[in-house]
Design a binder for these strands. Structure first.
Lengths: 338, 338
DNA sequence: TAATTTTTCGCAAACGTTTCCGTTCCGGAA
DNA sequence: TTCCGGAACGGAAACGTTTGCGAAAAATTA
């Protein structure tokens, strides 16, 4: 089938040794300028492509970075991956992506496959089931560096996340500024690392405004369904309706909106809604959703940078946590259109 | 760093040669059952993992399939990739994904990288810019088999697509059945292979119902913005408003809905809307969108199967085109909720 | 001019497998 | 007893690179 031209072909063509060709190709110092140019020239002429397998067999590394994300059906992770790809490409790393489908077992399986294929490192965001901390440790101890983003385990490891607490606080500040007082937080899954962070920012904002956060947090989840059900429970409970909702993420916010609209409530007049982690649906719902836009690509870039730093380091490098800032996009779901 | 155990370690441990170990591992016929078991046992004990580089260096293939998709921010392509992954995994192929960002140049670059990396084959969906047909040919002639899905070039090659024309016809039939007579089609980009197919189904349905498709097709695009602008042009033109819209895809449908609602029109009472290629936004918009649900995972699986068939074949295999059926999900945008 | 250094290159081993080709050992047939 | 054939295994080459070491040629210094 395909018969690729090798370093030997170049050597034969020029009547020199393969070692010289190799050195010329890798721009070594001990090869004459003239011969190097000739090598480069005939390499181009013959359309030479280095064989990555042979190269990696020598170098003991594959040049491949594994990416494991919970899903890529929502737009968040794909956007992060874009950033990762951008940064990896400039360092000539390639990536293989796999998705754990929010499933702890699948995540483990993906890790195994990636280790088997000798990825140089792994960038991942954990399943909302959590619980694989020990395996992360093992994998890293066995020599595969890891960097986490967005959803991170509670172990000591490099992470990049947005300043969830601060951004949540900012979002709730916005609700308070526009006159809301009875604000509820529809929180995420309890075992997700970011869940308490957003709740904390929520509480901080309330406290700062002299409001009591006690009892204002309800666990919802991460899907539209979760938000709708949580909101429905509140409506059915007969307790006085809040005048604002700070949701764990956009789908939960949208679910809450659905429940409220079904109950005949007006948004934002009766209840203002703020989401988190802006996705493609934010401008599609009606009213358009006020939400926190995360710097997704930047997050990916930063994660890639952290990993590359570890890969290039001679000796052990201390894990580092990078916090990124997000922005609040104010839309009609929190402030009535004029 | 990481020091993987090799076939030699097993050989030394057992006092046999590496060739025997290799044969035992690959289940060759000329190795005694007893020694094979011992090899397998110590392999497991030492946690042996074959080095893919060494193996591929011998076998002249990488076991990697390249996936090139225009984007993975919408949910369509990721879902297809899920199907691909499923099928490839069972044949022990891995994949590397890259995205062309709807950019012809980027697509070419991705192809180059993949060829350089010696992927065994490529599964791709072309950019909406099109125009790389010659390069596909070259790549294939140089020995890398390709399979296309959804967006396919007009050259002779294996493809898997849904029966666009038939499904479009079905969707428009539905509009006609519910009493619509003045139906417009907001079409896709002219250089996309599926654009004329959907337009054809549209025309067939009209003709079948005794309506004249002449002048009923307007070019829109693929994004929300495209749909809104196209619809706005129609509204501004002063021509009598259609009583139904068959959009090229969901975003275009949603864009049209936005323009109509902004103009004070009611959906579906004044104008019914049907989209295509159901995405995550279909049930988020209001009213919820009637649209054609494509069998995304199945599409991926089928593409993978086609490619694997080519890879396993000894000699040339004829390109094949596989058509898949979709389903019409009827929602409130085309039929008023009772 | 001789001695020494520098430049430039080739040889060969190595990376971890697979696989072709032998070799040894055995039982059975002649 | 000799010969043959099969079973089970080892030796070694090969895949396409990289790289340490040494050697020849050129340039510098004494």
């Amino acid at each position: 089938m395909k018969n690729h031209v090798t370093i030997k072909d170049i050597a034969r063509e020029l009547g020199i040794s393969t070692s010289t060709v190799s050195r010329a190709l890798s721009d070594a110092w001990d090869v004459k300028r003239e011969t190097r140019d000739k090598v480069l020239e005939t390499a181009k002429k013959l359309n030479y492509r280095p064989n990555p397998n042979a190269r990696n067999l020598q170098n003991k590394h594959t040049g491949i970075i594994g990416i494991i994300i919970p899903e890529f059906v929502s737009s968040f992770f794909p956007n992060v991956v874009l950033g990762i790809q951008e940064e990896l490409a400039r360092e000539n790393y390639r990536m293989i992506i796999s998705q754990s489908n929010e499933n702890r077992e699948q995540e483990l399986e993906n890790m195994r496959v990636m280790e088997e294929y000798l990825v140089d490192g792994i960038i991942m965001s954990v399943t909302n089931e959590g619980g694989n901390e020990a395996e992360y440790r093992n994998l890293m101890d066995r020599g595969t560096p890891m960097v986490f983003f967005n959803r991170c385990p509670s172990i000591k490891v490099s992470k990049v996340l947005i300043n969830d607490a601060d951004m949540a606080e900012l979002a709730v500040d916005h609700l308070i500024d526009t006159g809301r007082r009875n604000i509820l937080h529809l929180g995420g899954p309890v075992n997700l690392s970011i869940t308490p962070m957003r709740a904390e920012g929520f509480a901080r904002a309330l406290t700062k405004a002299g409001l009591d956060p006690e009892g204002k947090v309800r666990t919802a989840g991460i899907f539209i369904k979760d938000g709708r059900e949580a909101m429905q429970r509140i409506i059915d409970s007969g307790e006085p309706l809040p005048d604002a909702i700070f949701a764990f993420n956009d789908p939960v916010a949208i679910g809450a909106m659905k429940a409220l609209k079904a109950a005949g409530k007006r948004i934002p007049q009766d209840v203002a809604i703020v989401g988190f982690s802006e996705g493609s649906m934010a401008t599609v719902v009606e009213p358009q959703l006020t939400t926190v836009l995360q710097p997704m690509k930047e997050m990916g870039r930063e994660a890639a940078r952290l990993l590359i730093r570890q890969l290039k380091a001679e000796r052990h490098v201390e894990p580092r946590t990078v916090y990124l800032d997000a922005t609040l996009n104010v839309r009609d779901s929190s402030v009535a259109a004029e």
